[in-house]
Design a protein around this nucleic acid. Structure first.
Lengths: 215, 215, 215, 215
DNA sequence: GATGAATGAGTATTCATTCAT
DNA sequence: CATGAATGAATACTCATTCAT
C-alpha cells in the first residue's frame, strides 16, 4: 500500500539524468548544425542549452564522449527508422527505392541531426571518439546497401557494376543533400524523386512486375 | 649601363614575392593533406616551408587569406587542366566522359591539393574566407557541368532529369573518392570506369555515333 | 514511559554524527594514502566512503576542515599510543628507545594514516588548515622529545648537543621511513634497530645500568 | 675583417633564449619556494616573471618540462658545487664532513632553489617529469654517500651500520633544514656543526689522524 | 540526514597574430 | 625581406561548493 517511493525517486532521478543528457545532446546537435563543428565549443553548447559549462562535464566525461553519444543517437535513430521502412519491401529494386525515400524523409524530419552528423564525419572527429570505429562504422553503413545490390545482381535485376562503389556513390549523393537542408526553399521531394530515378537508371534496376506483362 | 635597374629590382621583388607565396601555399597544401586541417597551424605550415612564422604573416594578411589563396590556386589549376581536356570533346556525352576522366586524372597527379581542398571544405572553414563566396563558388563549379547536361537534353542525347541536381550528384560522387586518395591500394582507373559508366546510365547518355548505324 | 526520548534521539544523532565523521575521515585517509593528496578530490573520498558528495559538505564545512580533522585524529591516535609506551620507561635512554620503537610500531599497524599525514604535510596543505598552526603543531610534536633529551643531558646520560635540533633530526629520520611504507618488502624491524642504534650513538646515550658495574 | 655578424646574431638570439629560460626557471623557483608547489600555477609563475602566460609555453613545451628543467638545474648546480668540495677530502670522515658542510653552504647561498626542490620532490610531482626517473634520481643522490660509508667501514674508520639507511637518514636530516630556510633567524652554521657532530657520532667516524697520536 | 544536480572559478595548453630587430 | 620573441584570447577540463528535493 505504500508506493515504492525509493524506486520512484530513483527512476525520477534516472529520468532527470536521461533528460539532461538528451537535452545536452540536442543542444550539441543544434550548435553543430548551426555553426559547424569547429565552432561548437563546450561553452557554445552550454550556452545553447542554457546551462553552465560544468554541467556538461558532469553528465559527459569528455567532449569526445558527448560527440560519440550524439553520433550513436542520430545514427541509431535513423537506422531504426530506415530499417523499418526498407524491410517492408522484398525486391532489391523496391528496397533501393525505399532506402533512398526513407533516408530523405528522415532528413526532412530531423535535418539538424543529419547536418550535425555530416559535420562531425567530415571534420575527421571520428578518430578520437570512444567506442566508435570509423572504418567499422562506414562498413556497417555501407553493408546493407551493398547486400541489396549484390542480391539484385544475382537475381538478374541489376546491371553489372561494382556494388561497393555504387553503395559509396549512393551515400555520397544522399549526404550531398544535407548541406542544403538549412535552405528553406529546399524541395526534398524533388531530390527524392531525382535520386531514385538516377539510381534506378544507374543500377539498371528492373522491378519484377515490369517483366510480367511480357508473357 | 644598367637601365631599368629599378624596374628590375621591382620585378625581382615581385618575383620573389610570388615565389614565396607559392612556396607557402605549397607548404600549406602538404601540411593540410598530411595532418588534417585542424592540425595545420601556422607554425606547422612554416615548419614545413622551412621559414619563420612571421614570414607567412608578412605575405598573407591572415590565415584565412592564405587558405583562400590555396583554395583558389588548386581550384584554378584543376579547372584549367580539366577545361582543356573537356574542350577536346564536342558531344555532351563525350564531354561528360572527359570531365570525369580528367578530374580523376588530376586527382591522381595532384592528390595532396585535392585532399587539402576537401579537408578545408569539410572543416567548414569556407565561411570566413575572404573573397570566397561559398555558394558562388559552388555555382561556378557546377555551371559548366549543368551546361553540358542541358545541351545534351536539348539535343535529345540525355534523358530527362534535373541538370542542376545531376551536376551536384556528379560532384558528390567524384569528391567521394578523395578521402581514399591516401590509400596506396586505391585503384583510380577502376573508379574512373565505374563513375563514367554510372553517369552514362544515369543520364541515359547516347553518343551520336551510336545512333548513326541505324540508318 | 520513554523518558529522555529527546536526549536519546539527540545522543543517537550525535552518535550517528560522530560515526559519519569518522567514516568520512577514514575514507579520506584511505584515498589520500592510496592515490596521493592531489588526486584525493572530494568526489573520490565520497566514492571511497560509499556516500554522496554533498554529505561530506554536510558534516564538514570545508575540505580544509576535513583534512584538519584527519590530521588531528591521526596525530592524536599516534600520540596516545606512543605516550603510553614511552611512559613505561623511566630513563631518558629507555624513553628515547621506546619513542622510536613505538613510532615505528604505530607505522606498521596504521601505515595509511601515516602515509596520508605525510602526503598532506608535504603537499603544503597545512597552511590553510583551520585550527591548525603548523609551527605550533611542530612545537607540540617536538616538545616531548626535547624534554627527554634535556633531562638526559642534565643527568649526564646524553652527550652535548642542541636538543631541539636533535629532536628535529629524529623526526626527520623517522618520517623518512613513511614514503617506503607502501613497499611490501619494507623491513620495519631493520629500520627500527638502525634508527635506535643511530640515535643512541648520536646522543651518546648511556643506560644507567651500564654504568653501575663500574663500582 | 668582417665580424661574423650572422654567428653573432645567432648566438645573441640563443643568448636571449637561454636568458629567458633561466628567467622563467628562476621565477618558477621563487614562486614554488614562496607559495608551495600546488599554488605555483603557470599564471602565477608568469606573473612572478612579469611576462605573459603564453611566453612560458613558447619556451617550454609543458609545465612538466619546465619543472624538469628546474629540477635538473638546481640538482646539477648543487651537485657540481658539492662534488668539488667533497673531492678535496680523501678520508671517508673528511668527505662526510665536507659533504654536509658544502650542502648547507649551498643552501645558504641558494635557499629558494633548495626549498623549491624539496617542495617538488615531496609533492610527488616527479612521477610525470620527462627525462627524470624518480627512483634513479634517488639512487644517484644516495650513491656517493653510500660509497663513502662503505669505504669507511672497509677501512675500519666507521662503525657497523646499514650504509644505505644511514645515507637516507643523512639526506632526511639535511633536507629537514630546508623548511626553515625562510626563517631569517635561522642559524645555518649551528645546524652545520650539529649535523656534522651528530653523524660523526652516529657513524663512529674516526679521522685517521686521531689515531696517530697513540703511538 | 542524505542525495546528486548544478555552478563557476581555476587549471594547463594551443595558436593566430604583432612587432622590434 | 626575414626572424622569432611575445601576447592574449580561446580551448577542454577539474573540482570544491551550494542547494532544492
Amino acid at each position: 500500500m505504500q508506493p515504492d517511493s525509493k524506486a520512484d525517486s530513483q527512476s525520477a532521478r534516472s529520468f532527470i539524468e536521461q533528460a539532461r543528457r538528451a537535452q545536452i545532446i540536442d543542444a550539441a546537435i543544434t550548435t553543430i548544425a548551426d555553426s559547424g563543428y569547429s565552432s561548437a565549443s563546450m561553452a557554445q553548447i552550454a550556452k545553447t542549452a542554457g546551462i553552465s559549462r560544468g554541467l556538461i562535464s558532469y553528465h559527459f566525461a569528455n567532449k569526445d564522449e558527448l560527440i560519440a553519444q550524439l553520433v550513436i543517437k542520430v545514427y541509431t535513430d535513423a537506422g531504426e527508422y530506415m530499417g523499418a521502412r526498407v524491410s517492408t519491401e522484398s525486391t532489391p529494386a523496391g528496397q533501393l527505392r525505399e532506402y533512398i525515400a526513407s533516408n530523405l524523409d528522415y532528413m526532412a524530419v530531423h535535418p539538424k541531426g543529419i547536418i550535425a552528423l555530416v559535420e562531425i564525419f567530415s571534420s575527421g572527429a571520428l578518430a578520437n571518439l570512444p567506442g566508435i570505429d570509423a572504418s567499422e562504422g562506414e562498413e556497417q553503413s555501407l553493408a546493407p546497401v551493398v547486400e541489396v545490390f549484390e542480391r539484385g545482381q544475382q537475381l538478374g535485376q541489376f546491371a553489372d557494376f561494382n556494388p561497393r562503389f555504387m553503395a559509396q556513390a549512393l551515400r555520397n549523393v544522399i549526404d550531398g543533400v544535407s548541406p542544403h537542408l538549412s535552405d528553406p526553399q529546399l524541395d526534398l521531394e524533388m531530390y527524392k524523386q531525382q535520386i531514385i530515378t538516377m539510381f534506378e537508371r544507374a543500377t539498371g534496376a528492373q522491378h519484377p512486375s515490369e517483366e510480367v506483362p511480357e508473357t
